[in-house]
Nucleic acid binder design. Structure first.
Lengths: 250, 250
DNA sequence: CCAACTGGTCCGGTTATTAGACCACTAGAC
DNA sequence: GTCTAGTGGTCTAATAACCGGACCAGTTGG
């Protein structure tokens, strides 16, 4: 891939890094506890020293987070007295991150099962909601895949674009992002598996079946097609892992 | 809740804050691109100045991230020449965060739909895999909920424990964490909705139905019970949001 | 050979975070 | 009312991370 493709254009992989300070993250933790009712109005917080020890940050950082909250009228901080919750209106503060586990924190089987479930749902919605422009885009991506028969890397680029385009057409951002994340999990192993003889051809064939079902608006066929495809990917991923484990154990 | 419960014990809400630097995050971004095949061995990266501009960080930060990668033998950095990928073995580097969107980034309808889907799957697995100890724990939590009839906060604490205990019993960490995250999304609104007359009683009744289905190992009844419960929550959450919007628009 | 572009180094600055010490206030026990 | 333990408040010194910019030295392609 030319380096310009990394920097700009549709689905450019490199984006701005948005970074939150530790203080901000601690403030959000408190806000989440208040929003969820774990802490409520009138409750006293543990002392700053205890919070610092428990959360593994400095007392200064805790104080900074509490300053954020007291500025918004959520907690009351008084010298000598315990800090207290005085309002449960945490509006304006982001709640804690949605789901911040690392991809590698989960077992392959769990991810596989999750992906099957999400993709089936995505498939059914996409079959109902896909438009002609998306169908056309997917056709072009199949052509790109065919052109990349002998080039696993270029194939995977088109593969990813193919899958994420379908995910996005389901019309539900939560499901689309979930599906994309679960898809991405297997990319590392996938790249090694795709080198096997006939693997690319098989994937392209699967993709043709998927696209045909989408064009027909056939939700059952689409869900089945994606399911078969995903199981094949799962099997080849396991084979790669098994080979790596055998090598690692020698 | 006593503040000691925040600090220690089972399911203690306050945990250590693990914070990654911007440099670490950038290094992981590169590692993910390499693992996924977007970048492969032999590819030259964009220049440090271009990367800095695109990712919105300083050139120094980019250089630090590349130092991490060159130390691991993943990229080759040579004065005057373009930085190149020399290995795709990114083992040891965490891939980018699983799914780092904020809860509040998604439409309520999307989250609701996602939660319905995940909980149905979780329900079916839990019905098969739940053990006697978990059933006993859930019974105790129903008792706690009943005891909290006039206390919305205490009720929500037991409510949360009830749901997350079911999620954990499904045996799939991905699905369990997803379900927990989607559940948490509505907590802020839920707390306001739970104050409505009869809301707690209705929830407890729903929970009894859910527990009965779980005890019977009846996956269909469990999925249906959770679905009905979740739709009721969705409706009450929307009512709260609608009221808030009306107030905000005055 | 040369110019343009690259990485390498350095500087001055800001911000964030840390650990610790000490001061002043609060609240509960007596 | 007094006293003490525990609380928050302030300050210091230090380190780390990050930033923006300038300038030097090496590479590469024309």
């Amino acid at each position: 891939m030319g380096e310009n493709a990394l920097l700009a254009g549709q689905n450019a992989p490199l984006e701005k890094v948005t970074h939150r300070s530790v203080k901000d993250e601690v403030a959000e933790r408190f806000a989440t506890l208040i929003a969820s009712g774990v802490l409520n109005v009138g409750d006293a917080l543990p002392s700053e020293r205890e919070l610092a020890a428990t959360m593994g940050v400095s007392r200064e950082t805790i104080r900074g987070a509490l300053l954020i909250l007291s500025t918004k009228g959520i907690v009351s901080v008084v010298q000598g007295a315990r800090t207290k919750v005085v309002s449960d209106d945490v509006g304006g503060l982001g709640l804690s991150a949605f789901f911040s586990g690392r991809v590698t924190d989960y077992a392959l089987e769990d991810v596989h099962e999750g992906r099957l479930m999400v993709e089936e749902r995505v498939a059914r919605l996409a079959a109902q909601r896909v438009d002609a422009a998306t169908i056309s885009e997917l056709e072009k991506l199949i052509d790109k895949q065919t052109a990349a028969m002998g080039d696993p890397v270029r194939f995977l680029i088109a593969d990813r674009a193919f899958h994420t385009t379908i995910y996005q057409s389901c019309g539900n951002a939560v499901l689309s992002d979930l599906a994309t994340t679960l898809y991405s999990y297997q990319l590392d192993h996938r790249r090694r598996a795709i080198g096997a003889t006939g693997a690319i051809a098989q994937s392209i064939e699967d993709h043709r079946v998927i696209l045909a079902a989408l064009k027909a608006g056939d939700a059952d066929a689409l869900a089945e097609g994606l399911g078969i495809h995903e199981r094949r990917i799962y099997d080849s991923t396991r084979a790669v892992l098994s080979t790596s484990e055998q090598k690692a154990s020698k």
